[in-house]
């Protein structure tokens, strides 16, 4: 059940996308997300689809693996689709009491669903092809210019990489605790909302205790190795751009320009 969350899970295969510089991938994901918010019409969505399909093909991660991440946003999807579907004014197609479906609503709901799905899949492509460490390295270096205005970039990226590093550990821990309590007859699925909330106590107490213990252990281990922040710290694998990265940037720029153009000239 908990293992279905694909966001933030690295998928180890070798591909062009896996080898790309994390900064390029971050920028590309950002471009894709911006383009989704610019998109308004079939042409633009067709271009976004092409972009996504290309990225998925290049990543060599099985498509079914990315779709699994969608399960987690199912309810969000359902709510936003029904809001758009029923509460948009315009030319009425069907009406039931105060709920009415309009041509504009149908269009809005369809594109909204597409946008959400693309957002999740798009960011999954990045996290599936980039290890958490590469990701934070990319962020640290890519946002390094912010240090000039006193943003603690290193500290933030260190916090992020620790948090990301802990996700799989805590997921596994949760799994073990759930099993240990299920072996004692605990039931996490049935019952009403209050019973369900109550049944979480035997899960959350050991989980919190273990998380705090791990946090203090880690702090101790970092201090034992003389960690004192980012100043003067060198990298084992410094990032540098290659030809494929430059090509990718060129491609992103063209794509973004095309999407902006589609928006300005209102292509269908």
């Amino acid at each position: 059940m908990i293992r279905d969350i694909t966001l933030g899970q690295y998928y180890p295969v070798k591909s062009v996308l896996h080898q790309m510089d994390p900064r390029t991938k971050l920028f590309g994901t950002m471009v894709f997300i911006i383009s989704l918010f610019l998109a308004d019409g079939l042409c633009a969505y067709a271009a976004a689809t092409a972009f996504l399909v290309l990225a998925i093909r290049l990543s060599r991660v099985p498509f079914s693996f990315m779709v699994r991440g969608l399960k987690t946003i199912f309810f969000l999807l359902l709510i936003s689709v029904s809001f758009n579907l029923f509460l948009t004014d315009g030319e009425v197609l069907a009406q039931l009491w105060f709920l009415k479906i309009t041509r504009e609503g149908l269009r809005m709901a369809f594109f909204m669903a597409l946008r959400l799905i693309y957002l999740v899949i798009g960011s999954s492509v990045m996290t599936l092809t980039t290890t958490p460490n590469e990701l934070t390295d990319g962020l640290e270096k890519g946002l390094g210019f912010l240090k000039a205005v006193k943003v603690p970039v290193h500290e933030i990226s260190m916090m992020m990489s620790i948090a990301l590093r802990f996700i799989p550990i805590l997921v596994e821990e949760t799994d073990k605790i759930m099993k240990a309590q299920m072996a004692r007859g605990a039931d996490f699925e049935s019952g009403n909302l209050i019973q369900k909330a109550k049944s979480m106590v035997p899960l959350l107490v050991p989980l919190f205790i273990s998380a705090f213990r791990r946090a203090t252990d880690l702090a101790m281990a970092m201090e034992a190795r003389c960690y004192r922040g980012g100043e003067g710290r060198t990298k084992m694998k410094p990032l540098h751009y290659e030809r494929r990265d430059r090509l990718a940037y060129l491609f992103f720029a063209l794509y973004l320009a095309a999407m902006a153009a589609a928006r300005i000239w209102r292509l269908p």
Binding site: E173, K179, A180, Q181, A183, R184, G185
Partner: peptide
């Protein structure tokens, strides 16, 4: 699970 009791390695988990 009442009849086949399973005790996990770490008591901290339960």
């Amino acid at each position: 699970r009442g009849k086949v009791g399973l005790v996990f390695q770490y008591p901290e988990h339960q």
